[in-house]
C-alpha cells in the first residue's frame, strides 16, 4: 500500500498524517504542492493546516496548485482513495470534488476539542470521538445540493453536539462512487494510545481493509 500526502506551504498536519500512515505499515511519501505525478499512490491525503496561509478563504488558493489540479485525473481514473482532512476537506469543497462549502464557525472563534460523531458506514462503530481544530468548519450547501447528498447517502460523519453550526450536523462526506472522503475531524490524531484517543484507528483500518481487498482481488 502506498500513501501520498500533499504538502502545501502552510500545511501543518503532514507529519501527523505520515505518522499515522506508517503506524499501519503503509509506504508513505510527501508530495510537494507543485508535483503532478499522482498515479503511483493507492491513497492520497490532503492534510490539515493553512495551505498558502488560507488567504481569501480556507482552501481557496490551494485549488490552483499543480498537485490539486492533477487530482481530477487521479479521481477520474479511479486509481485509489482521496482523503481530505480539515483544510483538506475545505480544499475538496473549493475544487468542487465534494459539494458544498466550509465557512466560519457560528461563534466566529477557532474551536479545538474532542467531539462525538455519529458514523454512517458499515463495519465502523456507530459512534466515535475525534478531535476537531478549525475556525472555518461550518458546512453549508444549498437545498438542492443537500438533497443530492442525502439521495447518494454521502453523509459519513455527523456531530452529536454540533459545535460550529454545520447544516444537518455534517462533519464529513463520503462520495463512494468516486472514492473521495472529506471531513473536518482529525482521525490521524486518534491513533496513538499515548495521546489518550484511539478512535481514529477505525478510519485507517477502514481504508486498509478496502484497499487490501482490492490488492488481493488484483493478484
Amino acid at each position: 500500500m502506498k500513501a501520498g500526502i500533499i504538502v502545501f506551504p502552510g500545511t501543518n498536519c503532514d507529519i501527523d498524517t505520515e505518522k499515522a500512515c506508517k503506524y499501519f505499515g503503509w509506504e508513505t511519501e510527501f508530495i510537494w504542492h507543485d508535483d503532478t505525478e499522482l498515479n503511483k499512490y493507492d491513497i492520497i491525503f490532503l492534510p490539515g493546516g493553512f495551505s498558502y496561509g488560507d488567504y481569501i478563504r480556507a482552501g481557496r488558493l490551494a485549488k490552483f496548485s499543480p498537485a490539486v489540479m492533477s487530482l481530477k485525473d487521479y479521481v477520474k481514473t479511479k486509481r485509489g482513495f482521496l482523503v481530505g482532512i480539515c483544510n483538506g476537506f475545505q480544499i475538496l469543497c473549493e475544487t468542487k470534488l465534494l459539494p458544498g462549502i466550509l465557512s466560519t464557525n457560528t461563534n466566529t472563534k477557532f474551536i479545538c476539542e474532542e467531539v462525538e460523531l455519529e458514523v454512517n458506514h458499515d463495519g465502523f462503530p456507530k459512534s466515535v470521538k475525534f478531535a476537531i481544530a478549525h475556525g472555518e468548519g461550518r458546512y453549508i450547501a444549498d437545498e438542492q445540493t443537500l438533497q443530492g447528498i442525502q439521495a447518494k447517502n454521502m453523509i459519513f460523519l455527523r456531530y452529536k453536539n454540533n459545535p460550529n453550526g454545520s447544516v444537518l450536523d455534517i462533519a464529513g462526506l463520503y462520495d463512494k462512487e468516486n472514492r473521495i472522503i472529506g471531513m473536518m475531524p482529525h482521525p490521524e490524531r486518534g491513533v496513538f494510545s499515548e495521546t489518550g484517543n484511539i478512535d481514529g484507528k477505525y478510519f485507517f483500518e477502514m481504508l486498509n481493509k478496502a484497499l487490501t481487498k482490492e490488492t488481493v482481488a488484483a493478484t
Partner: peptide, 16 residues
C-alpha cells in the same frame, strides 16, 4: 481560552 487553541496538532499531547 484553550478551546480556541489547537492543542492536539502534532499528535504528541498526552495531557491536554
Amino acid at each position: 481560552v484553550y478551546r480556541q487553541y489547537d492543542h492536539t496538532v502534532g499528535t504528541r499531547t498526552a495531557i491536554k
